[in-house]
């Protein structure tokens, strides 16, 4: 197998942190199958957001333990909320290092979840200035039918300071995938999934699909096109 230029996750995060800004590359797309390490990578990216306002949209019908904080700090990955109040973070009553992180969770009532998520996206679109984490963006855009709201929020990246981390297990029906200036392609199964990952990097051809298909869990092909880009690189290691 041919290999890409390799680097460590810390070095890749340093590069991502230097270009991650509304005026630069505002949106990340993290693509990989279940168990590829998407949530772990999102947490690593949130390490670049210690003093930022963060809203995590977790649409799963049941609480995902991956977002539970350690025993001594249960709000380390955001305060779970059921609705987003105006001027989110104004009282610094959330979680995270500075009380600015919030996590909107789903419930088994999908209609109610869709309404709450739509209201949250409307608040983000109106207020701007937020790091929006869409954990499983396909669930939000397809099952909850919020593709337009997601697109509207992402369109405000430069003008209103909305930055996003989109996590997806599929490439179809994923709103905002074309707007992600930074792509992280992780472990996938099957040729169609590998082809989807290669296309997200702007690659074509069977050889490059094979490169994407060979990515192991917790490894990533990181691609961005900002000035000084090294092209897609293979990122290994954990934070």
């Amino acid at each position: 197998m041919t290999a890409l230029p390799a680097t460590t996750l810390d070095r890749a995060l340093s590069r991502a942190g230097s270009i991650w800004h509304p005026a630069g590359a505002p949106h990340h797309l993290v693509y990989g199958q279940t168990g590829a390490g998407k949530s772990t990578l999102i947490k690593a990216l949130l390490g670049l957001c210690s003093c930022e306002r963060v809203l995590i949209l977790d649409p799963k019908p049941h609480p995902d333990p991956v977002w539970d904080g350690p025993d001594g700090d249960p709000l380390a990955w955001g305060r779970p909320v059921t609705e987003v109040s105006p001027v989110l973070g104004g009282e610094r009553d959330g979680g995270g290092p500075f009380g600015l992180w919030y996590r909107l969770t789903g419930t088994p009532d999908r209609a109610a979840t869709a309404r709450r998520f739509a209201a949250a996206l409307a608040v983000v679109a109106a207020e701007g200035h937020c790091v929006l984490v869409l954990d499983d963006v396909r669930e939000i855009t397809r099952q909850l039918r919020l593709a337009e709201a997601v697109d509207s929020a992402l369109n405000l990246g430069r003008s209103a300071g909305v930055l996003a981390i989109l996590s997806a297990t599929e490439t179809g029906y994923v709103a905002g995938r074309a707007q992600a200036a930074q792509a992280w392609i992780g472990h996938t199964s099957g040729l169609p999934a590998a082809r989807g990952g290669a296309e997200l990097l702007g690659w074509r051809g069977a050889e490059r699909q094979d490169v994407c298909a060979a990515v192991a869990p917790h490894e990533w092909i990181y691609g961005e096109s900002q000035p000084g880009s090294a092209g897609p690189v293979l990122v290994t290691g954990r934070p």
């Binding site: 942190g17 991650w20 800004h21 509304p22 670049l48 957001c49 003093c51 930022e52 306002r53 963060v54 973070g89 600015l100 200035h129 937020c130 790091v131 300071g161 930055l163």
Partner: peptide
């Protein structure tokens, strides 16, 4: 802040 979402 570095990403521009908050002020101090």
């Amino acid at each position: 802040s570095p990403r521009g979402t908050w002020r101090a």
